[in-house]
Design a binder for these strands. Structure first.
Lengths: 149, 149
DNA sequence: CGTGAAAAGACGTGCTG
DNA sequence: CAGCACGTCTTTTCACG
């Protein structure tokens, strides 16, 4: 992981379909050198994959929420995962330290669909309470982690 | 936006560097037809861009948190954006309806760096309170929106 | 809106400094 | 590790169903 690798990752963050030659001219390397580094980063797991960023609104998802889950007793992350994986509206979820046990990020077409998805999660018997914060407007949305340093 | 478009987006979500020929054989179209559709989706804004998914841990980011911000008086989303954009540890942020005014997703190298970043946000005079939930473990992490339907 | 062909260019490997 | 050169496969554009 040197400066060249970080520069390459920066290029790929902005455009993952850039050619190796393009990236090379930006970071000052030849195309084959860039490819070798990208392959190495992928093999080492630094690069998890390449995806497309889709506008949720264009696909009809206009409602977003963060839901805090409070559980009864000790619920394992695996049990939580099993329940949440069944709900397609769940985009990401983490166990957290603090008031709630888990924080779930959800995206749905509308409030009705969101409500139904939350109901489905709450059917798990060990869910005690859920607190939903509906997103009003996205203020910041960065590709991934902060600066490459 | 028909089934072919959705199938193409599904392929690109899994691997944004797939060739048009590869995508075509998966969705049952020729390479040129796929390219035309991808170009159209990009032009219409459905596709916002192509990025690489980086393992935060491999880059040294091992601490993640969701921070709820409570503000004094009416703070505009624009003012919030100005403050949060200055903090590189902020990955995403939204204004929310519910108890807090905003929810901020942050990634940092360690707890110390996270603490300093939160302090920097709290310097804004209209921040009344902040509640931080530190992520213990990621349970679910999906590329983007739920299923393509 | 689809296919198919043909030119221009990128990829990916092997070799050398 | 980097660069260069090579053959192969893709991209990109075109005319046409």
């Amino acid at each position: 992981m040197d400066d060249s690798d970080r520069a390459i990752l920066g290029c790929l963050l902005r455009n993952a379909r850039a050619t190796y030659a393009q990236i090379g001219s930006e970071v000052g390397l030849s195309a084959s050198a860039v490819k070798r580094r990208v392959d190495a980063l992928t093999r080492r797991g630094v690069i998890r994959g390449f995806t497309v960023v889709i506008d949720p609104d264009a696909l009809g998802w206009r409602t977003e929420a963060y839901v805090q889950l409070y559980c009864r007793g000790n619920v394992s992350p695996e049990a939580l995962q099993r329940v949440l994986a069944e709900v397609p509206e769940v985009v990401s979820a983490s166990t957290v330290s603090g008031s709630a046990d888990a924080l779930v990020h959800m995206v749905a077409a509308d409030v009705r669909q969101l409500e139904r998805a939350i109901e489905r999660i709450r059917r798990a018997p060990w869910i005690e309470q859920s607190v939903s914060d509906i997103v009003l407007s996205r203020i910041i949305e960065r590709p991934t982690g902060p600066q490459l340093g």
